[in-house]
Computed example of a mutant assay.
Amino acid sequence: MTEPTLDVVAIGNAIVDVIAQADDDFVTSEGVAKGSMRLMDEATSDSLYSRMGPGREISGGSAANTVAGMAALGAKCGFIGQVADDQLGAVFAHDIRANHVVFDTAVRAGQPSTARCLILVTPDAQRTMNTFLGASQFLPEAAIDHELIASARILYLEGYLWDPEEPRAAMRAAIEIARAAGRKVAFTLSDTFCISRHRADFLNLIDSGLLDILFANESELLSLVEGTDFDAALEAIAAKVPTLVVTRGVDGAVAVHDGERATVPAEPVERVVDTTGAGDLFAAGFLAGQVQGRALADSLRMGAIAAAEVISHYGARPEAKLSQLVADKLG
Rank of each mutant, 00 (worst) to 15 (best):
F215G: 00
D17R: 01
L88W: 10
R248H: 03
K76S: 12
F79D: 05
Q111W: 07
A14T: 02
G89M: 10
E57L: 14
A22N: 05
P268V: 02
V107E: 03
D23M: 06
V291T: 11
A63I: 02
M40V: 11
L88N: 09
V291H: 01
G12T: 09
D231A: 15
Q126I: 02
A22F: 07
P140S: 15
T228V: 13
I11D: 00
G74H: 12
Q111N: 15
I96W: 03
A262D: 04
T275V: 13
A169R: 13
A278P: 07
A308V: 06
F187W: 06
I144A: 09
A150E: 13
A255Y: 00
D124H: 11
E260N: 07
S47W: 14
D258Y: 06
G60E: 04
V241M: 01
V18D: 10
F132P: 03
V269E: 04
S47V: 12
D145E: 05
L224I: 10
D274V: 00
Y160V: 00
R51F: 13
Q87R: 11
F26I: 07
D207G: 12
A186F: 01
D24I: 04
F193S: 04
E141V: 14
A115H: 05
A327P: 08
A180V: 09
S29P: 06
A238W: 00
A255W: 00
D258P: 06
D298S: 14
P164C: 08
V245Q: 02
A63V: 03
G81I: 00
A178Q: 09
D201A: 10
A10V: 02
S219C: 14
L39Q: 05
M1H: 05
A233C: 10
R116T: 13
E226A: 15
L161S: 01
A181D: 12
D207K: 14
R197N: 14
L88I: 00
H100Q: 11
P167M: 13
E30N: 08
K34R: 12
A71P: 01
G315Y: 11
A33S: 12
A238F: 02
A278S: 07
A266V: 08
R199M: 12
A327R: 15
D86G: 05
L221M: 10
G55Q: 10
A10K: 12
G89R: 07
S151C: 04
W162T: 01
D163V: 15
L325E: 08
P54A: 12
R168G: 02
A283R: 00
I305L: 15
R51C: 12
W162S: 00
A288N: 08
V264T: 12
E141A: 13
A262G: 14
D251H: 14
T5S: 15
N65W: 06
A142K: 15
R108F: 05
G259V: 03
E166C: 05
N13C: 08
L118T: 04
G134K: 08
V185M: 05
K240E: 02
I206L: 14
T2A: 15
G303E: 09
R301M: 14
T105Q: 10
T228M: 09
D229A: 11
F187H: 02
A233H: 03
D201E: 10
A181W: 05
V256T: 06
V264M: 11
V32S: 10
S45Y: 09
I15L: 15
A239P: 10
L133Y: 06
Q111V: 09
A14W: 03
